[in-house]
Amino acid sequence: MRAREIMSRPVVRAAPDTPVREAIALLTGHGIAALPVVDDDNQVVGLFTEADALSGVLTGAPVGPDLRVDSVMTKLVEVVGLDTDVSDIAARMPVDRLRSVPVVDDGDLVGIVSRRDLLRPLVRHDDAITSQVRSLFSDYTGHRDLWSVSVAGGLVTVCGNFSDEDERRLVTALAKTVEGVTAVELVRPAAAFGVDLEEE
């Protein structure tokens, strides 16, 4: 797998003269760990990270309106190409303490690979749905494990006992709130081997 297949884009970025306050707002507002800093030619000249932002706070530097990104950014930035193997990127991150790496094409910024991007392919879509549905059910039941959940191709199968029709409808509605769910089937435990299936 190559960087082009997992990178995030479009890239939230900053310019060297972006005020640090604005850059911090971009980091927190987009929930990201780093902003590539690019010049007028879209060339990466630095990386403004959470650590860069925090270093100013911890050293007592005033984060006033005149403090610019280029005065605190990390200047020695590792970049990768579109065809860099994902395993190479993953190997660099812990060694160099990187949380994200800009992706360039002929020097132009075209994407960014974060640790989250590297992890995403390891989780199948159905696994993500299963996790979210289980979390919803856990919240609803007060963290009691009442039903088992399996997902195949977006079809959610819930096996367990339901107190009444209202609860069946509620369980179905909860599962359907998860993005990617195509249908919900409720199965009683005795029916787990092929009988008494209820599709919603």
Rank of each mutant, 00 (worst) to 15 (best):
F162C: 04
A175D: 03
A192Q: 14
A51I: 09
P16K: 01
G56D: 03
S114F: 09
R134Y: 07
M73G: 04
A192F: 09
V171K: 00
L146W: 14
L136Y: 06
V184E: 01
A25V: 09
G31H: 02
V158T: 04
R2Y: 15
A51Q: 10
D105M: 03
K75T: 15
I24N: 00
L47T: 04
I24Y: 02
R97T: 09
P19T: 11
L82E: 09
L170W: 07
D40Y: 10
L146F: 14
S163N: 06
T28W: 05
G160V: 11
R99W: 10
M1D: 08
T172I: 02
D41F: 12
A15I: 07
D41Q: 10
R188Y: 12
F193D: 14
V12D: 01
R92T: 06
D85V: 11
V86Y: 04
R92G: 08
V158K: 00
G56N: 04
V80D: 00
P94M: 08
R21M: 14
R124H: 13
R21C: 11
E167N: 02
V156T: 10
D96Y: 14
P102V: 13
V156A: 05
A34H: 10
N161P: 03
G56H: 04
E199I: 13
V72H: 01
V86H: 02
L136V: 10
H30K: 11
S114Y: 07
L109H: 00
P19D: 11
V158I: 15
L170D: 06
E179V: 09
V63M: 13
Y140H: 09
V123Y: 13
S163A: 11
A15C: 04
S71R: 12
E22K: 12
S148K: 13
P189I: 11
L47Q: 01
M1W: 10
V72L: 15
